[in-house]
Design a binder for these strands. Structure first.
Lengths: 340, 340
DNA sequence: CCATGTAATGTATACGTATTCATTATAACA
DNA sequence: TGTTATAATGAATACGTATACATTACATGG
């Protein structure tokens, strides 16, 4: 059973294939009778338009790719949702690749996307190792937008936030409350640029306040509630003087709260906790979590709009957009307890 | 600046386009010298293989589509992650559509996917309104897999869970603890089949225990922590006799916990709460949430494997897979308080 | 030395559509 | 009635690749 094409429809309707094409694309250029005839035959034969072939003929690219490190994190959900919502308004479709934090996989995905003739690629977070490759892809005519971080790239577009500033602001907030021994739990800042910037923001804020950086207070792990709990338990057992912990992701902070409860300590009376992301659960947990609001969905929408706009206009000007973040003060941070 | 094709490479290498094609696809069928020559020219010219054109020529479909109701829900994350992980092992890529709970949008997406020549479509949850259409798409040769629910469809494949049974089991668990006035908060069961099955499981369990169904105890809303909080607050203010609430989604249960804290009531001493999904946060919140574990990632993996297998073998046999769920008993449910 | 097999390559065609250009018929207008 | 614009359609070609078939050169075996 062969797939039926426009040619079959054309034969059945006693017209040329060109006319069928016109009937579907520019019906006004076809007479009322033939249009009707063609429509009927299409219905009878269950003909299905092949848009892939059409895109090929038109030399038109209709896919936009998204590359993420992980799909599991609920943080990405907002970003993907935002991207998808904007893209679905256009004639493009979204195709998703997962690099699993692996630069080689990321590289393969980028190449695959390029060969698949994607119109553009949004890279949620990219290893710096692949920046050169991305620039070459960009040069070859595929639009690239980086997200999640305020980007220093000289060529590529980006839509992100200032992780460094947000992190140093939050650290300063804790310092302002009187904390001196402030722990830091974060994702893998050796691998992920934006996390490194958060780490640097934390370090620089401490330095500026003449607080020495103590590497025993710093833990890098894969962000999840479970790992946050484990990391917090570790900090608590090693360092009784700790009065605050900055978890650079709400999932980690959420897990940390659980570890603190297990130790029968109170938040924020005994210890202060703050997060980063403003995930949905953060305002409903107990105590509610002081954190940094990140406009993930807006970031996604904006990135999608940038790439669609670039594709359409073909303009070469570089766009770097930095969205605002702000500290959301809730109930999980307070002054440090008085020295015993 | 024109895109360079195999023909350009062929000319530069003084060979035919066919030879270039062979050099890339079946290098063993090309002599060592010409292969080397071609490789070099490809590097020099920055030629990029056009896999879209190749797919077209080969009449090969290489995309698999996923249609979801929403991307915001963290529940979907596990499913998508599982699907993606299996698909990336194959030569297919994943393309995502969001129907936003709208049957018409879903219909449009299905058609779009069909015209785009997708090899298969995984429908996370589909309106029953589009079942006929999906069956016709299936009949036209595009593989379709439904997920999330144990499916009664006579034709389509499915990988899901038994929402009805899981829900009635959980309700029976609450009844077994001694509860008689049991509230129910769920997503939109008038729109979503799997939620309706959860609702029916709840109702039938009550009936079987001779407990009358009180519609004042039942709230349907969009699943989110915020809406769970709102719904719970409403239940608490309307019905002081309530001793337990079954929230048919952990996000709703999580919000409900927050509303109960606001009323200065204790869980589970004053009121029991249970959820559905076993989201990541459910074991770390306070109290930890008794819920139904749903193997979302496995469901995704399985659905992806089913569709890939069907595509490859072209077999016609219908596959209906129902994965096990189980009640995870944690700290949020107990016996009802003694009557005052 | 001939027959046969095989490796390496070229030629030609197909995939399903959009679109340019050419053609015909018809309407509008002077 | 002749001219011209226009509507409707067909014929032909292009998009970039894979591949069946044809061709050539050369090796192997008798």
């Amino acid at each position: 059973m062969k797939r039926i094409s426009m040619i079959d429809v054309a034969k059945a309707a006693n017209v040329s294939q060109a006319t069928v094409s016109r009937a579907l694309n520019t019906p006004s250029r076809v007479s009322k009778e033939t249009l009707e005839k063609i429509i009927n035959i299409i219905k009878e034969t269950n003909y299905i338009y092949n848009s892939a072939a059409a895109d090929f003929t038109r030399q038109k690219k209709t896919l936009i790719g998204l590359i993420v490190f992980t799909l599991k994190s609920s943080i990405q959900t907002g970003l993907i949702d935002g991207i998808q919502k904007e893209i679905e308004k256009t004639n493009y479709s979204l195709i998703i690749g997962n690099s699993h934090y692996d630069p080689a996989t990321e590289h393969r995905l980028i190449q695959e996307f390029q060969e698949r003739q994607l119109a553009g690629i949004i890279v949620a977070e990219s290893t710096e190792l692949n920046r050169d490759f991305l620039r070459s892809v960009h040069k070859a005519g595929i639009h690239v937008v980086l997200t999640w971080d305020k980007n220093e790239d000289p060529v590529l577009d980006s839509v992100g936030i200032d992780n460094y500033k947000a992190s140093s602001d939050m650290t300063n907030y804790l310092i302002g409350l009187g904390h001196r021994r402030i722990g830091f739990i974060a994702g893998m800042y050796n691998k992920i640029e934006r996390v490194r910037h958060r780490f640097e923001g934390y370090c620089d804020a401490l330095k500026a306040a003449d607080i020495p950086i103590d590497h025993k207070l710093i833990i890098s792990t894969t962000p999840s509630a479970l790992n946050g709990k484990i990391a917090m338990a570790q900090l608590l057992s090693h360092d009784p003087d700790l009065t605050a912990v900055f978890a650079a992701s709400d999932a980690l902070a959420f897990g940390a709260l659980s570890a603190i409860r297990d130790k029968k300590l109170r938040v924020p009376e005994d210890i202060s906790i703050c997060g980063f992301d403003d995930a949905e659960f953060s305002s409903f947990c107990s105590p509610s979590l002081t954190t940094i609001h990140v406009p993930t969905e807006e970031m996604g929408r904006c990135a999608a709009n940038v790439i669609v706009e670039k594709i359409r206009t073909g303009k070469e000007n570089q766009l770097k957009i930095t969205l605002d973040t702000n500290i959301i003060i809730r109930d999980s941070c307070g002054n440090p307890p008085h020295k015993k």
